[in-house]
Simulated assay, not measured.
Amino acid sequence: MKRIVLLFVLGLFISCNAQEKKKATQPATTNAMPKTENEWKARLTPEQYEVLREKGTERPFTGEYWKHFEKGMYVCAACGNPLFTSDAKFDSECGWPSFDQAIKGSVNYHNDSSFGMERIEVTCAKCGGHLGHVFDDGPVQTTGKRFCTNSVSIKFIPAKK
Rank of each mutant, 00 (worst) to 15 (best):
M1W: 13
M1G: 14
K2M: 12
I4E: 10
V5G: 00
F8V: 14
V9P: 11
V9T: 13
L10W: 12
G11M: 08
L12K: 13
F13P: 07
I14S: 09
C16T: 07
N17W: 11
N17F: 14
N17L: 13
Q19S: 15
K21E: 10
K22A: 10
T25F: 15
P27Y: 11
P27G: 12
P27R: 07
T29V: 15
T30N: 06
T30A: 03
T30F: 10
N31Y: 12
A32D: 10
A32N: 15
A32Q: 13
M33S: 10
K35W: 06
T36W: 05
T36M: 05
T36E: 00
T36K: 02
E37K: 03
N38F: 15
N38T: 15
E39K: 05
W40A: 03
A42D: 06
A42V: 06
L44K: 02
P46L: 06
Q48P: 10
Y49A: 01
K55F: 12
K55V: 09
K55E: 03
K55G: 10
G56H: 03
G56K: 01
T57C: 00
T57L: 10
R59V: 12
F61L: 00
E64D: 09
Y65C: 04
Y65A: 03
W66C: 05
K67E: 09
K67T: 08
H68K: 02
H68M: 07
F69W: 08
Y74H: 04
C76R: 02
A78W: 06
A78L: 10
G80P: 10
G80S: 08
G80V: 07
F90C: 01
F90I: 04
F90W: 00
S92P: 09
S92Y: 06
S92E: 01
E93H: 14
G95F: 05
P97Q: 04
S98Y: 02
A102N: 03
I103T: 06
I103G: 03
G105T: 07
G105D: 09
V107H: 05
N108K: 15
D112C: 08
S113R: 15
S113M: 13
S113C: 11
F115T: 04
G116C: 06
M117Q: 02
M117L: 11
R119G: 09
E121D: 03
E121T: 02
V122A: 01
T123V: 14
T123P: 06
T123F: 12
A125Q: 05
G132W: 04
H133Y: 08
H133V: 10
V134F: 07
F135Y: 02
F135K: 02
D136F: 13
D137V: 09
D137E: 07
G138I: 08
G138M: 07
G138T: 04
P139T: 04
V140N: 10
T142C: 05
T142L: 08
T143Q: 03
G144T: 01
R146C: 14
R146Q: 06
F147A: 01
F147E: 03
C148Q: 04
T149P: 02
N150D: 02
V152L: 03
I154R: 00
F156Q: 02
F156P: 08
P158G: 01
A159E: 08
